[in-house]
Simulated scan of single mutants.
Amino acid sequence: MASQEITPADRIRELNDISSGIAEMLRHMGQAISALAPNPDEGGESMAARKATFDEHSKAAYTGVQAFQAKMRRQAYALEEAGIIAAEAPVIRVKSNQPQAQGAAAGRGGPAAAGAQVVEAERVTNGGLGNLDVGWLNSRGNKVAVEMESELLQEARELLQAELERKQTSEPAG
């Protein structure tokens, strides 16, 4: 049986479904949390009714989380199969060409005797940035927000100025 090819449009639809599933999951979480506190506006539901509501919505939220994990895992596998992301973080191996101390290299075989020492391999994390969190850095800079604010203020001034000029020319002199 031939496998059906999944198009980029299908992937986008799947991501859209995941997004709407998140909204539904958050709705259930909110309903579960609100069931924990008595609400005097609703006539004071009984404790048993609130527990039942909490159980219903928390189970639905948990099911939503499980579905989200499965769908995101499928998306990650698809990206790996397409060669867009690596299945595992690449490993960097560093070789040192510095000769070992004469006593250590004498009489022993292996790489040390050949003059090259293999240093412990390191996994590449965060695209080679290590523990540096680019998101954290970006959240600290507000240059874009300041520039956007000044552009919006300038645009508002221009609109107000145009409106004032339009009103002044449309009013009869007198």
Rank of each mutant, 00 (worst) to 15 (best):
A9I: 11
R13K: 13
R13Q: 12
E14T: 14
L15H: 03
L15W: 08
L15Q: 06
L15R: 05
D17G: 15
S20P: 02
G21W: 11
A23C: 05
A23R: 08
A23M: 07
M25G: 09
L26V: 13
L26G: 06
L26T: 13
R27V: 07
H28Q: 09
M29L: 15
M29C: 14
Q31D: 11
A32H: 01
L36A: 07
L36E: 02
A37L: 12
P38V: 12
N39F: 11
N39L: 13
D41S: 14
G43E: 11
G44D: 13
E45F: 09
S46D: 06
S46Y: 06
A48G: 05
A48M: 08
A49H: 05
A49D: 11
A49C: 02
R50F: 03
R50W: 02
R50M: 00
K51P: 01
T53H: 07
F54Q: 03
H57I: 01
S58M: 05
K59M: 09
A61M: 03
Y62A: 13
T63W: 07
T63S: 13
V65S: 03
Q66K: 11
A67Y: 04
A67M: 08
Q69I: 15
Q69A: 12
R74V: 06
R74D: 11
Q75I: 07
Y77S: 05
L79G: 00
E81F: 03
A82E: 03
I85T: 00
A86V: 02
A87V: 05
A89G: 08
P90I: 00
P90H: 01
V94D: 04
K95H: 06
Q98S: 02
P99K: 03
Q100N: 03
G103E: 07
G103K: 02
A104E: 04
A104M: 04
A105Y: 01
A105N: 00
A105G: 01
G107F: 01
G107K: 04
P111Y: 12
A112T: 06
G115L: 03
G115Q: 01
Q117F: 07
V118Y: 15
E120Y: 08
E122H: 12
R123M: 10
V124I: 15
V124W: 06
T125S: 10
T125L: 12
T125A: 09
G127W: 13
G127C: 08
G128I: 09
N131Q: 10
L132D: 06
L137G: 02
N138F: 09
N138T: 07
N138M: 14
S139M: 01
V146H: 03
E149P: 00
E151S: 14
L153P: 00
Q154S: 15
